[in-house]
């Protein structure tokens, strides 16, 4: 088994080992969310076999790649996987930041009234509590 680290703009190296028709990656879960790892893995299930398991190192996840056919070179797949992991991490961060807004958008899309501002539907324009009609 040899170790290599795949360089990328992400400074954290990911430990790798290669074997016959197999390879394994270890992912630091303080950098990547589990969700990101499983989603990245899903995308590769057409090209190879994957197994996720707990690493011996605490706080790390092990991703084992299995070749789907003899002579398959797993190296390039590992590289792509690392890049995919970065993108999935971005997506994970995005879903935490923007996910609640998406839920709100969908809820508002199908709601009858305004969910965000009750003044909107029922507020009196004569009273103009918001002062929209204030003269300059």
């Amino acid at each position: 088994m040899t170790s290599m680290s795949i360089r990328d703009s992400q400074p954290t190296p990911v430990a790798i080992s290669l074997g016959h028709n197999q390879a394994a990656l270890e992912v630091d879960l303080t950098i990547y969310a589990e969700r990101a790892v499983s989603r990245a893995s899903y995308k590769f299930t057409d090209r190879c076999y994957l197994l996720l398991s707990r690493s011996e190192q605490p706080g790390w996840l092990k991703v084992t790649f299995g070749a789907k056919h003899e002579k398959q070179d797993l190296g390039p797949l590992l590289g792509e996987f690392c890049n995919e992991l970065l993108d999935q991490q971005i997506r994970d961060d995005l879903s935490i930041e923007a996910g609640p807004i998406r839920d709100l958008i969908v809820a508002q899309a199908f709601a009858e009234g305004n969910l965000l501002d009750p003044q909107r539907d029922d507020g009196s324009y004569e009273d103009d509590a918001l002062g929209i009609g204030t003269l300059r």
């Binding site: 909107r120 539907d121 103009d128 929209i132």
Partner: peptide, 9 residues
């Protein structure tokens, strides 16, 4: 159009 912020209007 600003006062149409009030849906009732």
């Amino acid at each position: 159009g600003r006062l149409f912020y009030y849906g009732a209007f």
